[in-house]
């Protein structure tokens, strides 16, 4: 039996200023699948997080249980049951 992995996905307030993206619980076994579920119902959000090649934007960070994802293009980092996924921006000046 395949165990269902329910992850909770959070978005920072800076991102929520531009796109309505409340915290959601979705199913998936890696970051790509998790985000795909999120973007399925929020297509505009995808362009804020991923670039034209569907890689994580240069100044964005995605953390799974506090650890930054390593595969920024394939997004194959594993998500566990009850994982917390944070989609946030890196710090910048200006």
């Amino acid at each position: 039996m395949i165990k269902c992995r329910m992850a909770k996905v959070y978005f920072t307030s800076n991102l929520r200023r531009h796109v309505d993206c409340p915290t959601v619980v979705v199913v998936g076994k890696n970051v790509r699948e998790i985000l795909a579920e999120v973007f399925k119902v929020n297509t505009r959000l995808e362009t804020y997080v991923l670039d034209d090649q569907r890689a994580v934007r240069k100044h964005m960070r995605i953390l799974v249980d506090g650890v930054a994802v390593k595969d920024l293009t394939g997004l194959t980092d594993t998500v566990h049951s009850k994982s917390e996924v944070w989609v946030m921006q890196a710090l910048s000046g200006g």
């Binding site: 531009h18 362009t47 997080v49 670039d51 034209d52 100044h59 964005m60 921006q89 200006g94």
Partner: peptide, 27 residues
Amino acid sequence: NHGHFGIKLHRRDKGKKAWNEIASPKY
């Protein structure tokens, strides 16, 4: 240019107050 969140385009129709985000050119 949102920096973190990429390049976005907005449009405002004639006589309207509100801007709406539209598609941005995508490679």
